[in-house]
């Protein structure tokens, strides 16, 4: 039995009673390919930030600094639109090996 709240204690009808909670749903587990950035080639144009459908590009002081891997689904759009091709989609299995 999966963990979670029992049927008597959740809102009926599948309603979600609070706003802005989609970040609580971790979609990173869906990912088969992980974006890996070559920071030296990155020109911080932020195309990836504009195009990422899951708001998973982390930006500080107008610089691209990495990926939110708890939410990145590995769609590869960032790698596709990157003008310097600094993002490589890498199979998750390679990171499994690292562990």
């Amino acid at each position: 039995m999966p963990k979670g709240t029992g049927w008597k204690d959740i809102p009926i009808g599948g309603l979600i009673l609070e706003a802005g909670n989609s970040a609580e749903y971790k979609t990173g587990g869906w990912r088969a390919f992980r974006p890996v950035r070559d920071a030296e080639k990155c020109i911080h144009c932020l195309f990836c930030w504009i195009y990422c459908p899951d708001s998973s590009i982390l930006v500080q002081d107008e610089k691209m600094v990495g990926f939110d891997l708890e939410h990145c689904k590995g769609c590869g759009v960032c790698a596709q639109v990157c003008p310097t091709k600094c993002i490589t989609m890498t199979p998750e299995t390679e990171f499994e090996k690292e562990k």
Binding site: W7, I10, P11, G14, L15, L17, E18
Partner: peptide
Amino acid sequence: MPTLLDVHNPVTYGPLDFYDYYFEHKR
């Protein structure tokens, strides 16, 4: 229940409901 036009109590109707909660909603 809260309704879609109640802006003070925002609510989502019809979100995805997979193996983690669908069963509870049927119950």
